[in-house]
Amino acid sequence: MSGAYRDAGPWRILWRRLQRNPQAMAGLAIVVGLAVVAVLHPWLAPYDPAGVNVRQILQPPGADHWLGTDELGRDVFSRLVYGAPISLLVGFVAVGISVAIGTVLGCTAGYYGGWWDSLVMRLVDLLQAIPTFFLILAAIAFLKPSIWLIMVIIGLTGWMGVCRMVRAEVLSLRDREFVMAARVQGAGDMRILLRHLLPNAIVPVLVSATLGIAGAILVESSLSFLGLGVQPPQPSWGNMLAQARDNLAGGWWNTVFPGAAIFVTVLGYNLLGEGLRDALDPKISDR
């Protein structure tokens, strides 16, 4: 009897709605599968991803090399598996940075308003007017390309959407009666922000973060493809594509599989994100 009320919490409702959406569940399966691959990559890869083997150059997919080998004889499957944690790391850290910045600025701007709000929102306008990808290209051109630099730059240029959204949520929640009720009990600004406003605003942030991971992975792949991202010999899906460009005729497997990995990953996160968004839509009835 003590669990009588448990299945009506907001997270339970979200999960129940998500379960009814096959596309979202497919997205979730992809996301979870990738996470497993990323965690277990040293054990899943049959070969050393950097192991050059001149006798096995450009082997087509077969029993020895499931997804073939590249022009240096390295196993494509092993390299793909080793690329997974890098892509996910970039996605998560970059989005982590932008969610952190966006949430802090959005919360405080919405809650305190006034000159701080104006300042933050003008900064958002300013940054949104700059084409992010070229800003990243320019920044990396000046600094030494590294995976950490990419994560930081993607994070620093991607927080504006989260900030706008959190601010709007906080604005609409700020004057609700339960906030006044908390204040009447002696809660301070910090407590109200962290324990009353943020939890009510966090679910839409989750949606945007999920979609943001897909975006960050795409940006990383694009940068690596242009040679400004993850640097060889460290394998990443983007730089595998870049290397394969020269052998398009001789080894289709070198472009198709990394491309498919990027495609499936981005698709997975997008499906999950869209599913979460639908599950949160109050216009969809629950039962």
């Binding site: 204040r183 009447v184 009990q185 301070g188 939890p199 009510n200």
Partner: peptide, 23 residues
């Protein structure tokens, strides 16, 4: 803040919206 809730409590008109829906 030390007075609010501790020395003086308050009840509002609208019980429907005075509780935080997510907790």
């Amino acid at each position: 803040r030390a007075v609010r809730g501790r020395q003086v409590g308050m009840v509002f008109q609208e019980p429907m919206t005075s509780l935080n829906p997510v907790f």
